[in-house]
Simulated assay, not measured.
Amino acid sequence: MDIELRHLRAYLALCEEANYTRAAARLHLSQPALTRTIQQLERRVECRLIERSSRRFELTEEGAELLAHSRRIIADIDTVRDELRSRATLDVGFSWLLPDTWFAQTRTRYEALGGRISLHRVEDPMAALADRSIDIAIHRNEIRLPRHLASRVIGTEDRMLAVSVNSPLAHVEDLRWADLASYPLVVNVVSGTIHAGSWDPPYPDRAIITCTNFDEWIELVAADRGIGGVPILARTRAPHPGVVYRDIPDAPPSHVYLTWRAKPAPLRSVQRFLGIARDATPIDD
C-alpha cells in the first residue's frame, strides 16, 4: 500500500518531539493510535525507522533519510495549500449601497495578496449566509444572530429623512427626529435601518407600511405612503425623482456590520478579509 500524508505528518511530529506522548498530544491522537501509525509506515517502507534498543529516541539511517524527505514533502504540500487558499474566491453579499470608499480600499488590499472577491446583491444577507451562497455579509440592520454567526461593526453613517416630493415635510424647516414620531413609516423588514422602535418612546398608533427590499421601500416613500430613514450616501447613490432627502441634525446614526459564519472555524480567506477590513479606513460619513 502507498504511504499517506497522515503517516508522514505523524512521523515528522514524532521526530520533532522525540517522544510518543508529546507527539500524540500534538497530533490530538492517543499514544496507541500514534504507535500504530508509525508501525504502518514502517511496514509500507519495509524498513525500521526508529531504533528499538536505544534508551534514547534515535532514528535508524533509513529513518533519518525519510525524515529529510518528509520535511520537504510536507513543506511543499503546505506551501501549495496556502497558495491556493490565498487565491480562493471570497463571496461577499450586500443588500444595497456598499460603503464604497471603505470597500474599495478593503478589496484592493485583499486582492493584492492574491485573493479574489465576488460580489453578490442579495435581498436577505442572513439567508444567503445560512445557505452558504456567500461567505461574508455587509449589512446595516441590527440583527440578533444565531450562535454560529459572528458580527463586527465596521463603521457608522449619518442618517437622513426620505419623504415624497408631495409630502409637507419636504419643505418644513428645522425638522428634528422627535418631530417625525407620529408620521406613517415605511419599514424594510429585511434590510432596513429604522423601525418604530427607532423613536423613544414609539408612537402608539403609528401606521407602519412594510416591504422586503430597498426598491420597494423607495417606491413606497415616493408614493407618499409614509416617511423613511436612510444613510446619507443614498442622496448621491440612490436619487429618485419622487423622493426628497432631508438632513435631520439629531437623527441617530446607523451602523454598518460585517457578519460571517464563526462555527465551524471560518476559512482562512474569510479570516484574511476580516483582518484587512479591520485595518481599513473606518466608515464615518
Rank of each mutant, 00 (worst) to 15 (best):
M1H: 09
E4I: 04
L5M: 11
L8N: 05
L8V: 02
R9E: 14
A10F: 01
A10C: 10
A10D: 03
Y11R: 03
A13Y: 02
N19A: 00
R22P: 00
R26F: 05
Q31F: 00
L34M: 10
R36P: 01
L49H: 03
S53A: 12
T60H: 01
E61T: 09
E62H: 08
A64T: 09
L66R: 08
A68C: 05
S70W: 03
R71F: 00
R71N: 06
R72I: 10
I73R: 06
D78C: 04
D78Y: 03
D82I: 00
R85D: 10
S86R: 14
A88W: 08
T89Q: 11
S95A: 15
W102Q: 11
F103V: 02
F103M: 13
A104F: 01
T106H: 01
L113P: 00
L113G: 13
G114L: 06
G115T: 12
S118M: 09
L119T: 03
D124Q: 05
L129K: 03
L129D: 10
I138C: 03
R140M: 14
E142W: 01
E142M: 05
I143Y: 05
R144E: 14
R144A: 14
R147Q: 07
A150N: 07
A150T: 07
S151G: 12
V153G: 07
R159A: 12
R159I: 13
L161G: 06
V163M: 14
V163R: 15
V163K: 15
V165P: 00
N166H: 13
N166A: 12
P168S: 11
R176Y: 02
W177M: 12
L185D: 06
V187S: 10
V187E: 12
V187P: 07
N188S: 09
V189S: 14
V190C: 07
S191P: 02
W199Q: 13
D200T: 15
P202D: 02
R206N: 04
A207C: 05
I209M: 09
I218N: 08
L220R: 15
A222W: 04
D224C: 01
D224E: 05
G226T: 05
I227E: 13
P231K: 08
L233C: 11
A234V: 11
A234I: 03
T236E: 13
T236A: 13
R237V: 06
R237S: 12
P241N: 08
P241L: 10
G242N: 09
V243N: 11
V244I: 13
D247A: 14
D247N: 08
S254K: 08
H255E: 15
H255L: 15
L258Y: 02
W260M: 11
P264Y: 02
P264A: 06
P264K: 05
P264E: 04
R268G: 02
V270S: 01
R272L: 03
F273N: 05
G275V: 00
A280W: 00
T281Q: 07
I283E: 03
D285R: 09
